[in-house]
Simulated assay, not measured.
Amino acid sequence: MPRAKDAVTAIPDGFIQINDHPAELWSQVAFDRVEGLHDEERNRDPDAHDMYIYNDYFGYACCDLLKREMLAIGKLVASKKEKHTLATFHRIEALTLYMCHSGAADTFHTIDDGEFADVLYTAFGSLCLTYILNLESAAKPQKLSPTHPLDILNLENVIRTAAKAIMQFADMGFENEPNEVSDAMLRVLERNDMNGTPKEKLILGKSADSDDEDDDADKENEGGEGEDDDERVKSHRPKKKARRSGADDVDVRDAAKTWKASKAMKALREAEAPFEFYGRPWDITKWTKEEMDREKARFAGTLSDDNAVGFI
């Protein structure tokens, strides 16, 4: 007896489906982490505290936030005990979702320090590619799948979204081309009989500001389907198989050398982090009331910059 339609397409426990699109499956764990990052981001935003500090303050504050998060994930990816765990995947998943929609993703590449922005950009792509390659190695001699070696029902969506997210930063003058790591991630999915096609856009489905239903579901109906997948996976993935990644296994090996997490984390640790504002934390909520009042007064023109600095 065939399963009822609502049973097949039901959202698995612990997951959220964005825009009612079956492929846009994200874990609640990742959502909670992203919400925490957004809270930290708001705490660093002068506009949220009715003050102006200097043009790049928010950008540099977000760079500091990204650096802290990426270095923490880098430790997990490098750990023999943690690199293959679901907890590490959730951190990669959360970072991917955060890089799709956040003030940090919008501003980190606009700061005056282009070299520091380049290091952050490379770190993002390197963490994602290194993780999926580590997971593929752990799956051998079998192929990597959403149920092996870990039960990650949204594996395809997260990796395909990461591949799309890194492409946001094309033509920005960064040292390494984003299509190298993007195509490599898609090829890893493809060679493991998963959907290695590029996403049409970062988040599929009907957008909040659109009156028209998107036909993303039809466009996305071109992925792979593994023989061992259970119904939970099949109901949240495209059904056809097509190769569109534009990369082969040699390209993946080359990308793995250029976009290597250990190398990227070393560069990130050694990068000169932006100096905190007069020794204060980037998190404005950690300033004293007197510090906040003086900064607002300086913005209002009732306190000179010299007096503001002298207060520190």
Score class of each variant (00 low, 15 high):
222 E>T: 15
256 A>Q: 03
277 F>A: 06
84 H>S: 10
130 T>A: 04
118 D>N: 15
139 A>Q: 01
71 L>F: 04
75 K>Q: 10
170 A>P: 01
235 S>C: 08
35 E>V: 13
301 G>C: 08
269 R>A: 05
114 G>E: 12
208 A>W: 13
98 Y>A: 00
226 G>T: 06
165 A>E: 07
38 H>G: 01
276 E>F: 00
235 S>D: 10
271 A>N: 07
253 R>Q: 13
8 V>W: 13
174 F>D: 11
296 K>L: 02
34 V>A: 02
112 D>S: 15
70 M>V: 00
102 S>K: 10
257 K>D: 06
114 G>A: 14
278 Y>H: 11
126 S>C: 03
152 I>K: 12
247 A>F: 07
226 G>S: 07
237 R>Y: 05
19 N>K: 08
280 R>N: 09
252 V>G: 11
36 G>K: 04
67 K>I: 01
22 P>R: 13
265 M>C: 09
244 R>Q: 07
185 M>Y: 12
11 I>S: 03
33 R>D: 09
292 M>E: 08
271 A>V: 14
105 A>M: 09
286 K>P: 09
206 K>H: 15
180 E>M: 10
47 D>M: 07
152 I>V: 12
228 D>T: 09
309 V>A: 14
299 F>W: 09
17 Q>W: 01
244 R>M: 05
61 A>H: 10
158 V>H: 14
171 D>I: 01
301 G>V: 06
10 A>Y: 13
286 K>M: 15
290 E>I: 11
182 S>R: 12
216 D>H: 01
18 I>K: 06
93 E>L: 06
48 A>C: 08
170 A>N: 11
90 H>F: 08
275 F>V: 02
108 F>E: 03
281 P>G: 11
127 L>C: 02
287 W>I: 08
252 V>E: 13
197 T>S: 14
117 A>C: 07
118 D>K: 03
242 A>H: 07
53 I>G: 02
61 A>Y: 12
16 I>M: 00
246 G>T: 07
140 K>D: 04
272 E>K: 08
275 F>L: 09
47 D>Y: 08
70 M>D: 03
156 E>D: 14
238 P>I: 00
302 T>P: 04
29 V>T: 15
61 A>D: 06
2 P>W: 08
43 N>Y: 13
206 K>G: 03
91 R>I: 01
188 V>A: 07
130 T>H: 05
175 E>Q: 07
146 P>D: 05
227 E>R: 12
153 L>W: 04
32 D>N: 15
59 G>F: 09
166 I>L: 06
40 E>V: 03
225 E>Q: 07
205 G>C: 07
138 A>F: 06
222 E>N: 15
258 T>Y: 02
281 P>S: 14
56 D>N: 15
297 A>T: 09
59 G>W: 05
223 G>Q: 10
83 K>M: 08
200 E>W: 00
237 R>H: 14
227 E>A: 14
258 T>M: 12
266 K>H: 13
127 L>S: 04
249 D>Q: 11
33 R>I: 14
50 D>R: 03
104 A>N: 06
284 I>Q: 02
192 N>L: 04
151 D>C: 03
155 L>W: 05
150 L>R: 15
194 M>S: 03
238 P>N: 00
63 C>H: 06
100 C>A: 00
49 H>N: 05
152 I>F: 02
224 G>M: 05
208 A>E: 13
218 D>Q: 10
266 K>G: 05
197 T>R: 14
299 F>G: 09
71 L>P: 03
72 A>Q: 06
269 R>F: 05
101 H>L: 11
243 R>K: 11
115 E>L: 10
